[in-house]
Amino acid sequence: MALVYRHITGEYYIGSQEDEKVSEFLPSSFDISLFERLSKKVFKEKDKIARKGIEIAKEKISGKDYTEDLIIQASGLIDESDKTINYLARRLRRLALTIYPELCLRVDDNKKIVEMLLSKEKEEINSLLGIKKSMGWKCQKKDCEFLKEAAGKIKELFTVREIASEFISEKEKRIMPNFSAIAGPSISAKLLSHAGSLRSLAIMPASTIQLLGAEKALFRHITRGSKCPKYGILFQHPAVQGAEKKARGKVARIIADKLSIAARIDFFSKEDKSAELIKEMERRIKDAKRK
């Protein structure tokens, strides 16, 4: 009887190829001595193995669907944009302070201040704010032209953020319709980032989903016996935010329960059952709040 080992570089035999009975060498019918003999033959083709291996690896890596990865990266891009926007907006406020003191004092919203500086002239801004006599420096137009330029660049970061946000919602509707309907696009993306993949969300117990993003607190709980955290990223969910402090843990648990079911449906079938899931979730949250 002959044995054949099917390798990526070709077929290798022990015994005669013409033998009537040829059985395949498999991990299940394993024998290390035989494998060493076969390997010795295969090794002669070492350059071919390396070339073929690289070819297969490239094929494999470029043939995957990276939607999940794009969602995760877009979510990271939003976080970083937010940080950068905050940082630059603070600088911009300081830059504009001497010329537009009232604007800087009264308008807290960064986006609004950026837009006003970008699109409006000094007189217009002051009259919009209802200021008759401003404390601002009476500079010439060319002295504050630079502010407009800077505001324009920051405005672009807001645009990046919006585009990434839209991208996330749209992609999530396709690959995780149930999950994103319950958690909302932004929280879904963050949970996905922490879990690493939709697959891991689907096989994760609800209690783990509940604590995603609270890893540090959980670690302190396990090693030093501090209080067990009740929620991680889910803290940002509107239903948790809307609940009384002492009910928040329970609400987070209920959401996590539904998310766990949703992740499984999304991973295995993608059938949209979000309406039912949300209804059931809201009912349980109401009950929990009553108690």
């Binding site: 080992y5 099917r6 390798h7 990526i8 498999l26 991990p27 290390i32 494998f35 060493e36 076969l38 390997s39 295969v42 090794f43 070492k46 350059d47 193995i49 390396a50 291996g53 690289i54 297969i56 690896a57 494999k60 890596i61």
Partner: peptide, 27 residues
């Protein structure tokens, strides 16, 4: 790296499933 060197075979598989690369990796 593998392309630059010629003696590296990249195997994009899960080490928990060696059966998947039984036709690639040798003794």
């Amino acid at each position: 790296l593998a392309e630059a060197r010629g003696n590296i075979v990249p195997v994009l598989e899960d080490a928990n499933k060696p059966e998947e690369y039984f036709n690639t990796v040798i003794a």
